[in-house]
Simulated scan of single mutants.
Amino acid sequence: MSEYQYFEFLAVDKPLNARMQSEVRKLSTRAVITPTSFTNTYHFGDFRGDPRVMMHKCYDLHIHVTNWGTRRLMVKVPAEALSGVADDYTVDPYLTAEATGKHFVFDFTSEDDSADFTEEAEGWMASLARVRDEITMGDLRPLYLGWLAAIGTAQRNEYAFETESEHELEPAVPAGLGDLTGPQQALADYLRIDTHLLAAAREASSALPSKAQATAALRKHIAKLPESTKNRLLLAVAQGRYAAVQAELARVTGDVRRSDHQPRTVVALLDHADRAREAAHRSRGRSAAR
């Protein structure tokens, strides 16, 4: 099979001006570049740019897909959206968080050189882009999925982590893992999360609060805000800085969306998933025998 690499970048908050487009053009003569996107496919050679630098300077989302099993997603969100929790879900090198100015850049990576491959990377960005909005709004499910995909690497590669890492505790389990949004399900698929591992994780996840409960909590909080804060937030909205305002208000309902449970160890989660997988295999065997 010939080499295949797909690169795509997306600018959401601030489109690139002519000068910035000219700068990124220097990185590839064949890329399709618009004020909001950069896309290129390689069947030979390699991309001359540094995705990390491009995310810092120009873009809000990035995907990289190869035919040797790499799937990478980078997401840039306002730092205030995740104050105090950004590092809780990181598992180097599979999910990292880097502070850059007023933002965090999350870097999700899945490696599986044994996976089947089809050249359909062009559709992933459309499926995954709204994950950024969800993280900005304080939804921690995408970050937990990134953590879960990272520890799931041990199912494919027993040498992925040091032995002592198996006894580390999971981060806070967000509510609603049993009711993933479309972008979150796409993220689980993109990161190749084992269905039995995801099912095991869901057992500790409570249901999401109803829309009425979330609205009531937000209304109560807004009523208590000083007038100066309300004016500041309203001015930010008028100036188009919706994400920053959403992130600040989202922190109000963030605690409501977390499940209250005893954290499990990595090895306990993996063992639970293994038992479920073995039980499903035996059940399929009995069905086939009948």
Rank of each mutant, 00 (worst) to 15 (best):
S2F: 01
S2W: 00
E3H: 05
Y4W: 11
Y4T: 06
F7N: 08
F7P: 00
E8F: 01
F9A: 04
L16A: 12
N17W: 12
M20G: 01
M20T: 04
M20I: 02
Q21I: 09
R25G: 04
K26L: 15
A31K: 07
T36P: 00
F38Q: 05
T39I: 09
T39R: 11
T39Q: 14
T41H: 06
M55D: 05
H56K: 15
L61F: 03
H62R: 00
H62C: 10
I63A: 13
T66L: 12
N67K: 06
N67V: 09
W68G: 09
T70F: 01
R71Q: 06
A79R: 12
A79D: 08
L82S: 09
D87H: 07
Y89N: 08
Y89Q: 06
T90D: 10
D92R: 04
E98T: 09
E98Y: 00
A99L: 14
A99V: 07
G101N: 05
H103W: 04
F104K: 03
V105R: 04
F108E: 10
E111I: 12
S114W: 09
T118V: 14
E120N: 15
A121K: 07
E122D: 12
W124D: 03
S127V: 01
E134A: 14
I135P: 13
L140E: 11
L143T: 13
L143W: 13
A150S: 15
A150Q: 06
I151M: 07
G152C: 05
A160N: 12
E162T: 14
E164T: 13
E164P: 01
E166P: 00
H167Y: 14
L169R: 10
V173R: 08
V173M: 08
P174T: 05
A175D: 01
L177H: 06
Q185Y: 10
L187T: 12
Y190G: 14
I193K: 06
L198R: 08
A199M: 07
A201E: 08
S205P: 02
S205M: 02
S205K: 05
L208V: 06
L208P: 02
K211R: 11
K211I: 05
K211G: 07
L218V: 03
L218N: 12
R219N: 14
H221F: 13
A223Q: 10
L225P: 08
P226C: 09
R232I: 00
L233N: 08
L235S: 13
L235F: 03
V237E: 03
A238D: 11
Q239F: 07
G240H: 01
Y242G: 05
V245C: 11
Q246C: 04
Q246M: 10
Q246D: 08
A247K: 06
A247G: 15
A250H: 02
T253P: 10
G254L: 15
V256W: 15
R257H: 12
R258T: 09
H261V: 14
Q262W: 01
T265A: 02
V266G: 00
V267N: 08
L270E: 04
L270K: 01
L270S: 02
A273I: 05
R277M: 08
A280R: 05
H281Q: 10
R282C: 02
S283F: 00
G285D: 03
S287L: 06
R290Q: 08
